[in-house]
Each structure stands twice: as C-alpha cells, then as structure tokens.
Design a protein around this nucleic acid. Structure first.
Length: 214
DNA sequence: GACCAGGCACATC
DNA sequence: GATGTGCATGGT
C-alpha cells in the first residue's frame, strides 16, 4: 500500500517541528472557551482573555452562565469582538445546560454525528469551532480545517483553491491513518507552519520545510 | 497607519 | 451559491 502524499507531509512537519502538545489549555472547558475566543484572532490575545477569566474565578460553565454579559465582556475584552463572543459563549452554555445539565462529560458521551450537528446549530459556532471542540476538548476523530490548512494545501496543490471546508476535511480524513492522535498533531503542526512560513501576504517559502513538496 | 490573526452570521444579489 | 460586510483587540 503506497503511502499518501499527505502522510509524507505530516511526517516532514513532525520531524521538523516536533510534537506541538495541543490544545494549550488545562481542561475541556478551557479548550472550548479558547476555541470560541480564537475565532479570527491572535492566540496571544485569547490567552490574555482566558487569564482574566481564571483570575476572576469565572472559568467554569456554571459561573460563566450566571454572570451577566457586560461582566463577561469586560474579562474577555483582549480577545476582540468581545460583545459578539460573549453572546457566542452564552449560546454554547445554554445548550450545555439545557441538553446536558451543564455536564461536559455527558455532552462528550453523545453520538458524534449528532453532537457535531448540535454544535453547528449554536449561533456563533461554525465548522472550525465545532471540530476544534470535538477533537481537542472531546478527543473525537475529526479533522480541523482552518485558514492555514486551506492556504497551505492549495498552494501545494493538495486540494483545489476553491475546495470547501467539507471537501478538505474529507480529503484529510480519507488519506490519513491514525485517528484523533494524528488529526490533533497535524492540525497543530499546520498552524505552526502557517505562523512561521505561510503568512497571508508575505510567505517565506524559501526556508519552508515543505519547499520540496511542490 | 496598514495589515494581520487558529471565523461566523447575515444581507444582498 | 457566490460575494461583501460587521465584529474589535493587540502585535508587527
């Protein structure tokens, strides 16, 4: 059985950067909050917001759900779009409360396909956020596609430039063996590569570890 | 000062 | 179905 090109890309990145130990966060709940706060936002700013929540002892589903919106917004301000993201956090917390009595452990036990649909039905949770929650908070075998994935894979001719989120996700899940452990590491490596070598307008292709993969 | 960062919803055509 | 826009902070 011939190894797929995508598996070689994964091997090169793992060799080059080493394991990334994702997601940065101490608990499933912290990971979920981070997944919502990091939408179109630098991780540094998200880390500040999470730090504020911790310092205020507000990083729990119950506390956060009971806190009023302006108090939450004040704490998460550094992560940007703070009014919007306050609502998005609350929307998630409402579902967690109404469907699972506030228990992430119970939410995690829901059937994968149905849980993904439920997450996507929450206003403010789209495919990347839903899949980040499933993979990194719940350890489900789901591949996360983000802006870096699209940019890097299409520049290297792995997927067409106009491929949809679902197209890219299916391509990855079809061609990668290893399940959630590999999906976890690969996405983290893609983000690492993206940050260092595949910036939006000024890519540094010369020193990119994938340069001979074209 | 411009551009960017681990998206998403909504309006409009 | 494709395309455009608002949301907002902090770093380069």
């Amino acid at each position: 059985m011939k190894r797929h090109r995508l598996q070689r890309v994964y091997g090169i990145l793992l060799e080059h950067f080493g394991p990334q130990h994702w997601w940065p966060g101490d608990s499933a709940f912290e990971i979920i909050v981070g997944a919502i706060l990091t939408q179109n936002t630098n991780w540094q700013n998200v880390a500040r917001a999470v730090e504020n929540l911790k310092r205020a002892s507000a990083l729990s589903a119950g506390k956060l759900r009971r806190m009023n919106n302006s108090a939450v917004a004040r704490l998460i301000r550094p992560s940007g779009y703070y009014r919007l993201k306050t609502k998005r956090l609350k929307n998630f917390l409402d579902v967690l409360h109404s469907s699972y009595g506030g228990s992430l452990a119970r939410m995690r036990r829901a059937p994968l396909a149905a849980l993904r649909q439920q997450l996507l039905s929450v206003n403010g949770i789209g495919p990347e956020t839903a899949d980040s929650i499933l993979l990194y908070a719940f350890n489900k075998p789901v591949f996360v596609v983000d802006a870096y994935t699209r940019r890097i894979f299409s520049r290297h001719g792995l997927v067409p430039a106009d491929a949809s989120y679902g197209d890219i996700q299916a391509y990855c899940m079809r061609n990668l063996a290893g399940g959630s452990g590999v999906f976890n590491e690969f996405h983290a490596l893609i983000v690492r590569l993206g940050k260092e070598y595949c910036l939006k307008t000024k890519p540094r292709c010369g020193s990119c570890p994938l340069k001979y993969e074209k």
